[in-house]
Nucleic acid binder design. Structure first.
Lengths: 336, 336
DNA sequence: ATCGGCGATGTGAGCGTTCACATCGAGTGT
DNA sequence: ACACTCGATGTGAACGCTCACATCGCCGAT
């Protein structure tokens, strides 16, 4: 009449059921050599019969390393980040890892410390941080260097392995496209902080190389609403003929505001986006934008981390994934 | 000259540094009573000095339960799911839990078993499954009932605590809106499987109650491209004056196709979406759609799970969160 | 003075695994 | 027939923590 302990079966239970020692069970579970095929079969049968699952907490405890990779980001629902996360999860799952997410919402120092604290108390194999803004960037600095880590987006942080999309190249292609169409200069509606952004860099450098005036960037947030507000302001400045937006949502907001203000796109103003979201081809006008493969980025980021975890092979420099311009309806020659 | 073991400091190290036993350290860490304030301060100082983090694997091993909640979904990057995930993460973080994601990509039986296997080998506190399709639904069935679990979206599964958005109510409001405008019937472009979907149910029931013809639903996928294809077909059938789309992306694709085919929206055909994505207000025409608070859904789903974990209070019935119709430009009276 | 009681702290055991090493039996070369 | 190797399996310890229980002072009540 003892209490019926609801307990997952352990290696010992499997060992007892198959008449071997727990060590042999361990060998079978971990696919090691030196186990008689017959014994292996017997153990496997017992595993199946008892519904045994290895306990990863116990394993992590003794090995000192888990099979979970943590993803640290300030946002996970914007299209690009969500897709990148998807890529990470995909590759991680295939490699037998599990994915944990931590969203850094507040720039508050103690909140961040708390998040990092909690991160490190788990048995992690490694960490991937979205370093497009300062939140994740400074969190990475707090992570002990012994923990394998990869930074994605932006400029990276803490000298970690870094992978990013060629936003600068994409921006250059976008600006060149507009210049080739005959625009005298191109305005940029970007999300601060603007400095480390490849988009800003590509925009500025290309204008500079072309020797055309470089207007001040217009600060926005990631929401279409913010794009709409900027677009309304731009509509009043008739000297602006081309706008390079920080992403497709902003671009869509700008387009809508311009048209609501009676201006034509691309007749009066050309607008170019960034990301090539699934909707970009179906808005009116459809958006000329820069296409990026976020899922691939996520997969590659995991692969990089995986290499770091397994063989500690630190890559020499940052990995840069290509982007490409997709020309659609929202850009055209300026009205003369 | 011993090997310099890179090892996180443990409770024992903290105990040694502050001159108490490891048990006292444990009490301090877990905020228990019965510790002298002075001792507590001394321990805390040592914790800080050594940079001690509790090892959650060890804790999970002995308590038999982790502080991680797993989210099981077939997709995490579509707007609604990404936002729901965000809400879960937010609430979980606030409550001291960590979030793990598992994407069920393939309907393959053994893949699913593999995923559940891996899920259960972790030290979980509970599980949240997005049961809008069969993938997560059948995974929930494989989870032992002792594991606290909450199902989100759709019809739920396994008799678990269930929370969902009032899609049916939203669909009803949408259809009524169109009927009120004078449409004779409303077509539905939905994503199969159609049966358990509240959108389909609300659409069908409202048409039925109005005593108007109920056309066959038109199958689509979640992509705008699929909407475009359906829209092109609809453009040829001039008797169709109103379409209720499965989500805003599909609606946008349909709108674009209709206009590309020379038909006017809403002049010739009214189109209504679902979700109220940030972009819905800025497309042309802006979309009449059903607004849903996904973030809140995620938060509430976690709260539900949290209740299950802490006090095992199983709610009586499903929780239904309100949705509401947002009227914009894509709907209007039919041309007579 | 003696004792129960209670607040503060310590001790032993065990959670389920892996690692390092020990053992054991059957072949192999001489 | 001998030590000798090697493949197969077993044993003890440890990972860092929490649980249950033991201990130790010190208080006021008798």
């Amino acid at each position: 009449m003892s209490t019926p302990r609801i307990r997952q079966p352990s290696m010992r239970d499997v060992a007892r059921a198959s008449g071997v020692s727990y060590q042999t069970v361990s060998r079978v579970i971990n696919d090691q050599e030196r186990v008689h095929p017959e014994t292996r079969a017997r153990v496997l049968a017992a595993v199946d019969a008892l519904g045994y699952h290895p306990n990863s907490a116990a394993r992590a405890l003794v090995t000192g390393r888990g099979s979970t990779v943590a993803v640290v980001a300030s946002n996970t629902s914007l299209y690009g980040y969500a897709r990148t996360l998807e890529g990470i999860e995909d590759a991680a799952f295939a490699a037998g890892y599990t994915v944990n997410i931590t969203v850094l919402r507040s720039p508050d120092q103690s909140d961040r410390a708390d998040a990092v604290e909690r991160l490190l108390s788990q048995p992690l194999a490694g960490l991937i941080a979205f370093t497009h803004d300062d939140l994740a960037r400074s969190a990475v600095e707090d992570v002990p260097s012994r923990m394998p880590a990869v930074t994605v987006f932006g400029t990276g942080a803490g000298g970690r392995a870094h992978i990013l999309l060629d936003e600068e190249g994409g921006a250059r292609a976008a600006i060149r496209h507009l210049l080739d169409l005959g625009h005298r200069t191109i305005h940029h509606a970007g999300v601060p902080p603007l400095l480390p952004s490849g988009r800003l860099l590509g925009w500025r450098a290309t204008l500079e190389e072309a020797g055309v005036p470089r207007p001040e960037p217009i600060p926005v947030t990631w929401e279409p609403r913010s794009g709409y507000e900027v677009g309304s302001a731009i509509a009043r400045q008739h000297d602006i003929t081309a706008v390079f937006a920080g992403n497709d949502d902003i671009a869509t907001g700008i387009v809508r505001a311009l048209i609501d203000s009676g201006r034509d796109v691309p007749g009066d103003v050309s607008v170019i986006g960034f990301d090539d979201t699934p909707l970009a081809a179906y808005t009116r006008p459809s958006l000329t934008t820069v296409s990026q493969d976020f899922v691939e980025l996520g997969r590659r980021a995991f692969d990089l981390l995986h290499g770091l975890i397994e063989q500690d092979d630190q890559p020499a420099g940052p990995t840069v994934l290509p982007t490409h311009l997709v020309t659609r309806e929202s850009t055209g020659p300026p009205r003369r």
